[in-house]
Amino acid sequence: MARHGAPGWRTLVMAMSMGLCGVTGQVMAGAPAGDGAPVCWSAPDDVRLAVMGVTGQGALLLAGGAVARLAWLDTPEPWLPARKAALEQLLGGAGAPPSEIRARNGGAHDRWGGFGVVADVAVARGDAKEPCVNVQAWLLGQGLARLRPESANEPAPAGLQAWRKAEAAARAARLALWADPAYAPLPADLPQAILRREGRFVIVEGAVTSINERPGLTWLNFGSRWSEDMTVSAPARIWRMVKRSGLTVARLQGRVVRVRGIVESRGGPMIELASPAELEIAETGSRP
């Protein structure tokens, strides 16, 4: 997948959004200031897309039938209807005229053929439009999605920290999906509870007790029994990216971290990092 702003991204969007010209004129770069377009669409490297509706998976259905997946988000299946309804309301209500979003490259195609976007929308309030609302941040803040980083091949978006804060606020307030204990972060010191989620996307929190750096693979341990306790593995390329982000061995040792990913069984539960964004220092900061 081409990076944000690259010609390949624009070509892909234009090819997959055939028919858009009948709604908004064309797939185009952000409108320059002064042409009457909301400031929401003033970024030169983005594209404007017309949204015709919301799919059952909570993705955006574009003019011409293309599907734009909202990148960096995960919504458990029981909450997909609520996400769909909330998005429809944000975009003006079900059956409303097409809405325009400002979109930028957010990730590779998914198995349903949708391409990943980071999306902003200007929300109508009466006869006026308010400043841009980032759709990802809005869903996270409503408790209708969890942050789920794309692969390390996709650069972290500029809004990553804002997304983390939005998710944290919704989690603390137990909004929507966070009111269900099934989706609460799992304590790292309960390995059997984590193992019961094998093959599923989870969030785990706990103190890093030791770190074992090796040339090809680094291990973050959450207990002294490595064959039974929770561990996180990071391939060499990912570990280099983790350290470049500021999460060095010295900073991680003894700290309470939050990790998200797919649970594997390797004696004890293990999550292999696919992106450096899957690991962060938790708000609680350090081990009691």
Score class of each variant (00 low, 15 high):
Arg200Asn: 08
Arg200Lys: 09
Arg200Glu: 15
Arg200Thr: 15
Phe201Pro: 01
Phe201Gln: 08
Phe201Asp: 06
Val202Gly: 05
Val202Pro: 01
Val202Tyr: 06
Ile203Trp: 11
Ile203Phe: 07
Ile203Ala: 11
Val204Lys: 02
Val204Cys: 09
Val204Met: 08
Val204Tyr: 02
Glu205Pro: 00
Glu205Asp: 13
Gly206Arg: 06
Gly206Ser: 11
Gly206Met: 07
Gly206Ile: 08
Ala207Met: 07
Ala207Asp: 06
Val208Arg: 02
Val208Ser: 03
Val208Phe: 01
Val208Thr: 08
Thr209Tyr: 00
Thr209His: 04
Thr209Gly: 06
Thr209Lys: 03
Thr209Pro: 04
Ser210Tyr: 11
Ser210Ala: 15
Ser210Leu: 12
Ile211Arg: 07
Ile211Ala: 08
Ile211Ser: 06
Ile211Lys: 04
Asn212Gly: 04
Asn212Ile: 07
Asn212Ser: 14
Glu213Asn: 04
Glu213Cys: 02
Glu213Phe: 01
Arg214Phe: 05
Arg214Glu: 12
Arg214Gly: 14
Arg214Gln: 13
Pro215His: 02
Pro215Ser: 13
Pro215Phe: 02
Pro215Val: 09
Gly216Gln: 13
Gly216Lys: 11
Gly216Ile: 05
Gly216Asp: 13
Gly216Glu: 13
Leu217Met: 15
Leu217Pro: 04
Leu217Arg: 15
Leu217Gly: 06
Leu217His: 12
Leu217Val: 09
Thr218Arg: 01
Thr218Ser: 15
Thr218Asn: 06
Trp219Glu: 12
Trp219Asp: 10
Trp219Gly: 03
Leu220Asn: 00
Asn221Trp: 06
Phe222Ser: 12
Gly223Asn: 10
Gly223Phe: 04
Gly223Ser: 11
Ser224Met: 07
Ser224His: 07
Arg225Val: 09
Arg225Pro: 00
Glu228Thr: 12
Asp229Pro: 07
Asp229Lys: 04
Met230Arg: 10
Met230Asn: 14
Met230Ile: 08
Met230Gly: 11
Thr231Val: 15
Thr231Pro: 01
Thr231Leu: 11
Thr231His: 02
Ser233Val: 05
Ser233Ile: 01
Ala234Asn: 01
Pro235Thr: 04
Pro235Phe: 10
Pro235Arg: 12
Ala236Leu: 10
Ala236Met: 07
Ala236His: 13
Ala236Ile: 07
Ala236Gln: 14
Arg237Val: 10
Arg237Trp: 03
Ile238Met: 07
Ile238Lys: 03
Ile238Trp: 04
Arg240His: 09
Arg240Cys: 01
Met241Glu: 15
Val242Met: 00
Arg244Val: 09
Arg244Cys: 01
Ser245Thr: 12
Gly246Glu: 13
Gly246Cys: 11
Gly246Arg: 04
Gly246His: 06
Gly246Leu: 11
Leu247Asn: 00
Leu247Asp: 00
Leu247Gly: 00
Thr248Asn: 04
Thr248Val: 09
Val249Met: 09
Val249Cys: 06
Val249His: 08
Val249Asn: 09
Ala250Asp: 15
Arg251Gln: 15
Arg251Pro: 04
Arg251Ser: 14
Leu252Trp: 01
Leu252Pro: 03
Leu252Cys: 06
Gly254Ile: 03
Gly254Lys: 03
Gly254Phe: 06
Arg255Ser: 12
Arg255Phe: 00
Arg255His: 08
Arg255Glu: 09
Val256Trp: 00
Val256Ile: 14
Val256Asn: 02
Val256Phe: 00
Val256Asp: 03
